[in-house]
Nucleic acid binder design. Structure first.
Ligand SMILES: [Mn+2]
Ligand SMILES: [Mn+2]
Ligand SMILES: [Zn+2]
Ligand SMILES: [Zn+2]
Lengths: 146, 146
DNA sequence: ATCGATAATGAGAATCGTTATTATAATCCT
DNA sequence: AGGATTATAATAACGATTCTCATTATCGAT
């Protein structure tokens, strides 16, 4: 999915919620759209530059989360990393490096995703649980840290 | 697994690492062994009482984590909750209720666990990632909130 | 059981990611 | 453009966690 089409989708979503799509918020969405995995506020600040102060960045992330545009992932050392919601990026899973903390997106072939869904369904049935979403997180060592 | 057998296993593990199994550390392990889910430092402090100060509790959790006795789960609002490692409790997955926030442990049959492991391996191979463990989190609605 | 070496504790200060405050500026609507 | 509303930015405040270091508990050897 291209950055500009994400931009259009987000603009539409925010418009529906009467939330302004400001320059700062555009910068955050663009940075996330061009990212290969969840990013923390300070990582985004590093990429975007000082034209968007950290405090504004945090507020933008909160607003975008409330609007369902971004999703938080809570990680080690009190760090929260954000990524675009799956209705913008497509469903995928995460590889979490136990050494450097990097989180990498990975899409899996349809056949395997079907297997995951089947497993999720049967696991849920065991506990009378109604599954809505799933997140198969693989923890290990990334290519750089191997 | 009974609390006292967990205690014995932990004692053995710490002994191997030349780490003392002090009363404070025993209190933490006992509280976790008697728990039905991951607990934060302050929750543990509430259960254990003031005979183990918060600062000591945090240090104990760090030590126990380094020894592989407890595992952290990072959650919202910068809260880290700990539970006993799976070699003490058995491998399991988590059902996270999006309504009430409860986290339910669930063990799945061996055949399905094998399927999960195979999926984890092939997903990891896609990204030259070395998997160490996995966590299939199912988000949805628990039996109470359904 | 006691001693001595060493590791752990406890009280508080410090750190750091995040959130709240509030005066100023940008945006939207007519 | 003008007025109303929402967003920004600088900084203070907050809270979970970590650090510091003087004191104390633990463990192995005697
Ligand atoms: Mn992702
Ligand atoms: Mn668990
Ligand atoms: Zn890594
Ligand atoms: Zn529930």
């Amino acid at each position: 999915m291209t950055t500009s089409s994400v931009d259009r989708e987000v603009q539409k979503r925010l418009g529906e919620h009467a939330i302004r799509y400001t320059t700062g918020r555009r910068a955050v969405v663009a940075a996330l759209a061009g990212s290969d995995g969840p990013k923390s506020a300070s990582e985004l600040h590093g990429e975007i530059g000082s034209r968007v102060p950290l405090s504004s960045l945090y507020r933008s992330l909160t607003i975008l989360e409330e609007a369902g545009v971004v999703i938080p992932h809570y990680g080690a050392k009190g760090l929260t990393r954000y990524e675009l919601a799956e209705w913008l990026t497509g469903h995928h899973h995460h590889l979490v490096c136990l050494d450097c903390g990097a989180v990498e997106d990975v899409e899996i072939p349809g056949a395997q995703e079907t297997q995951v869904r089947d497993l999720v369904d049967s696991i849920s049935a065991i506990a009378s649980f109604t599954p809505i979403n799933h997140d198969l997180e693989v923890e290990g060592r990334c290519a750089r840290c191997a």
